[in-house]
């Protein structure tokens, strides 16, 4: 007896929400970034569940793309963070507010 589709979707939703909360409340840029990755993974879980229950492989193939994009995004994002750290000497988000009015 496999768990129903609903269970998988709700699990994915829960992981997504936790990741989003992390983005909201953490002050360290790197940890925020990690929570972003968590959200992406939650999305991939949902995709795979759907593709399994619909019997096609489209969802799985799409996961490949998500992984690729995530990897590229992480590379570039971390490069930006490193460059920012060089200038500002900090990665705490509440000190990175030079776009303030």
């Amino acid at each position: 007896m496999t768990p129903s589709l609903e269970a998988y979707v709700m699990l994915s939703a829960a992981l997504f929400v936790i990741g989003f909360l992390g983005v909201l409340v953490r002050k360290n840029t790197l940890v925020i970034y990690m929570c972003l990755e968590l959200m992406l993974v939650a999305a991939t879980l949902a995709l795979v569940a759907f593709s399994r229950f619909n019997g096609t492989e489209d969802g799985d193939v799409f996961v490949f793309f998500i992984l690729t994009v995530a990897a590229a995004e992480v590379a570039v994002g971390l490069a930006i963070i490193v460059a920012l750290f060089r200038v500002r000497q900090t990665v705490q988000v509440d000190q990175l507010d030079s776009l303030k009015h």
Binding site: S4, L5, E6, S51, R52, F53, N54, G55, T56, E57
Partner: peptide, 12 residues
């Protein structure tokens, strides 16, 4: 989202 019939050996 009903619990659709899971396939025995998933196709993909």
């Amino acid at each position: 989202l009903g619990a659709g019939p899971p396939l025995g050996h998933s196709a993909g």
